[in-house]
Nucleic acid binder design. Structure first.
Lengths: 361, 361
DNA sequence: TTGAAAGCGCTAACAA
DNA sequence: TTGTTAGCGCTTTCAA
């Protein structure tokens, strides 16, 4: 910037004004500065400007997911990016592998880089919420799962109801022996889906059977193995519900290997690419992960704007407190933090329409 | 940091030393500083330290892909992240949608945030390479496609040979009418795959037919439409090669809708989830996108280290020039920039083993 | 409309 | 081993 000022024969401040499109610079000086900047391929240094700027914004947000490589996370990421692009904000990304230690490192890394806000899928570690709240003095929106013990903005799918609907649908096809393949049960999402399963069985007056419920499955391979186990039971289920897309793929794989994909009904939570092209096409409870990401980021920006307003204006929350008794977080004016539901949609394809059939043991 | 110093009763510099784990601070002072930092939930400000630090490193790299949401990009991303984690480096990500304007914005955004390096899938715009080189005065590794006119590090799959192998395989099954579904032909990747197709046909002495070649397909839907077109030809192909995974999915969809998935052979470039679970399982030329991302990032770090060494040491490239006549980029000591090939692997599944069969018109 | 000086949080260079 | 001073690139504040 100094070089630009020298080349244009103006002061630093004038260059600053032009770069930031502030008003009150004469056209010819503006032109001279522009030309000099072009000539030198000048790129403003956000990190330096942030340092001095009153609002301390870096124009960067963080996105923390379980694994940037998986379909769900990647699609959430795309949605976050859509919203970020609209505001010219950059996105730092990181995966936690649902490992609380890793999560902690990520939060620190983002924090040290002074992100303006954070969209996060919490890892579900015992005290993760505590230190996230402590570490990050920035707006924070959770996605997919609500961390325990912290009231904060969350964009969540109605996991319980969605699962309930799918199980009820299977029951309506006449299934009375419906198995459940679940993810890591310490995660709220997995727990909610399990509860939706139980709810639906209860509502339909169907039996539950411990050996039909396999939880804490961590990957498609474990789901494949679990499905094999189900098939070997003396009293095997006639339908299987897989509470997550990777698990559903794993279950499908096991059924296909046993040539039972047309004999045992299957449904899953989360849609996935080609689910409709499999034979049979797989029934799923579809979320809209792109929209979830988009909404989460929008919400984050709202929070950021609100925080900035309160901070710079010095206004208290008093004027709002009348219609607000939700919750107030400790550090910062996060008023009205709440859960923002997004509804899931049951997409009935072929796999769930397979009628119950007793197989030869 | 000032607060920490005050609370610990030491100078700023001492806190700095402790935070950066520099040697030569007495144990008790270290402990006092640590305690104070903990108490205040102090997080060092990388953006500020970068400003003053001699190496000017931000500990952040940029990753620019076509679309963070698609399977290939997301997996490359995961690989980049693996390598970045090993070095404690954060990753800024952005999608270009293969739009040169968008790409330009992304490069500027990264540049302004002073990334230490950039892993990029170039959008293939006419002059993109020029301004990338101008804008970014940082190490740069291209992935998946080599930008025209710039010699730089590239991690590339052997697209031409991989395609050749797949086409030869189809020919070996007796196919003489092999159609080609290609992506945006201005991209080098797409061009190479097309050339591999032509190579293989020529080598096998097979006829080419303009109506069997449909290029510049941008999404699965267009591939589905293109496949329909092929099926309606008076002299339709007996096998189809789709030069990209999304196109292959689109082609499969069209075949399945026409109930011809067991009558017409299919193979594609890029593996994809569930390709082996479709009926028939789809033969593909598999890349290893995670490894591609990992290698690209490793290469980038090598470059960064080399640049840092040369810059700080003030050494010229002279000592190396004996075994180096590859190319030297204008801005910076990027010696020996070259293409790093990763080999593809033909995975033969069922779809390519369908023999050629004349259909009733 | 323009510019000079101070300082954001931190580290380099140098002192003590 | 510890501290002091200057300054990274920029924006603020205030003066011309």
């Amino acid at each position: 910037m100094r070089d630009v000022a020298a080349l244009a024969g103006v002061s630093l401040k004038t260059v600053s004004r032009v770069v930031n499109a502030e008003s009150g610079v004469s056209p010819d000086l503006t032109a001279r500065v522009r030309k000099a900047a072009d000539q030198l391929a000048y790129r403003p240094d956000f990190t330096a400007s942030n340092l001095r700027r009153a609002d301390r914004r870096t124009g960067t947000i963080g996105l923390m997911v379980e694994d940037v490589g998986n379909e769900f996370s990647a699609t959430v990421h795309a949605g976050v990016e859509d919203a970020a692009n609209e505001r010219g904000v950059a996105v730092l990304t990181a995966s936690t592998a649902d490992n609380p230690d890793r999560e902690r490192d990520v939060v620190r890394a983002f924090s040290s880089r002074r992100v303006d806000g954070l969209v996060a899928v919490p890892s579900g570690g015992d005290d993760s919420s505590l230190w996230i709240e402590r570490d990050i003095g920035v707006p924070l929106v959770f996605v997919d799962r609500a961390p325990k013990g912290v009231v904060a903005d969350c964009v969540l799918t109605n996991n319980r109801e969605g699962t309930h609907e799918a199980i009820a649908h299977l029951a309506a096809q006449g299934h009375r022996k419906i198995a459940f393949l679940g993810g890591v049960s310490r995660l709220e999402t997995a727990q909610d889906r399990y509860e939706g399963y139980i709810d639906a069985l209860t509502a339909a007056g169907l039996p539950t059977h411990p050996s039909w419920v396999l939880r804490d499955l961590r990957n498609p391979e474990q789901a494949t193995d679990a499905t094999r186990l189900l098939l070997e039971l003396s009293d095997p289920p006639t339908a299987i519900f897989a509470a997550q897309n990777l698990l559903c793929m794993g279950a499908f794989r096991a059924l296909a290997h046993a040539h039972l994909q047309h004999s045992i009904a299957l449904a899953g939570f989360d849609d996935f690419a080609l689910a409709d092209m499999l034979d049979p096409a797989v029934t799923v409870v579809a979320q809209d992960p792109r929209n979830i990401g988009y909404r989460a980021a929008e919400l984050l920006f709202e929070r950021m704007d609100a925080d900035a307003g309160v901070t710079s204006g010095g206004a208290s929350a008093g004027s709002r407190s009348a219609d607000n008794d939700d919750a107030i977080l400790r550090n910062g004016p996060r008023i009205n933090a709440r859960h923002h539901p997004v509804s899931s949609r049951l997409i009935v394809r072929e796999s769930s329409l397979i009628p119950p059939r007793e197989r030869a043991g």
